[in-house]
Design a protein around this nucleic acid. Structure first.
Lengths: 112, 112
DNA sequence: CTCTCCCCATCGATAGACGATGGGAAAGCC
DNA sequence: GGCTTTCCCATCGTCTATCGATGGGGAGAG
């Protein structure tokens, strides 16, 4: 139970950003978000449910998304997540910060 | 002692890659590596010594760099780190993996 | 002598991702 | 009827990496 894990498939701290971005396409439930991330990234991003749901909880707590219970396309009970107004604002901030870091990192990688 | 920390200034897991890249410019001591990262990134990457030295230890353990004691430009005792042969090989792998993830993430950020 | 750089290093706390595991309901197959 | 697969939720325990604080020590300037 709880074995060591592989070198971290995902860049820690980026998951919330990816979720927020995904939700700009409209309301989605957790399972759907995971699927969409896999599809869009051509199977590269394999975000497990034990990473996804805690991240969604954090976003709920911060008030960046809201969740409402409903029925999925297949008539199953599901919680649909939507971006809030502050969520949209924060998404902009998060992207800027992410880009800032990426530019810095790319400078290092190219200067070498 | 050990207060909570800011949202992580650096992308966790990327530090080793940045160090390896930096060392392709030649042997360097820890302090110098930190300085160079700040300069090259235009002060964006502020890697503290408590992040840097543990990272260097890990790289030593993995045998990707070797360290040799010597004298710095200012005649101070310093440990100079150099890429090993396997270190160079691994650098290529790490970059590929990093790029793979970045491409995937960018797809998500652009598809939204 | 004191202060500021340089240069090393560790400890404790923290956050975040992961594997394993739990449940349950719908749909299809034998 | 059972059986398995797919969908959908969620938590617990473990681990890794980063960070702030803190320690020391030697060189050179004021």
């Amino acid at each position: 139970m709880g074995k060591p894990h592989e070198p971290s498939e995902l860049l820690p701290g980026t998951l919330e950003l990816l979720i927020l971005e995904t939700l700009t396409a409209g309301a989605m439930h957790g399972y759907g978000i995971a699927q969409r991330l896999r599809q869009v990234s051509d199977e590269v991003l394999q975000v497990g449910e034990s990473s996804l749901y805690p991240a969604l909880q954090r976003l709920l707590l911060k008030g960046w998304v809201k969740g409402e219970w409903g029925a999925s396309e297949n008539n199953r009970r599901a919680r649909f997540y939507t971006l809030t107004a502050t969520g949209r604002k924060q998404l902009v901030n998060e992207r800027q910060e992410f880009d800032r870091l990426m530019v810095a990192i790319q400078k290092v990688l190219n200067t070498a």
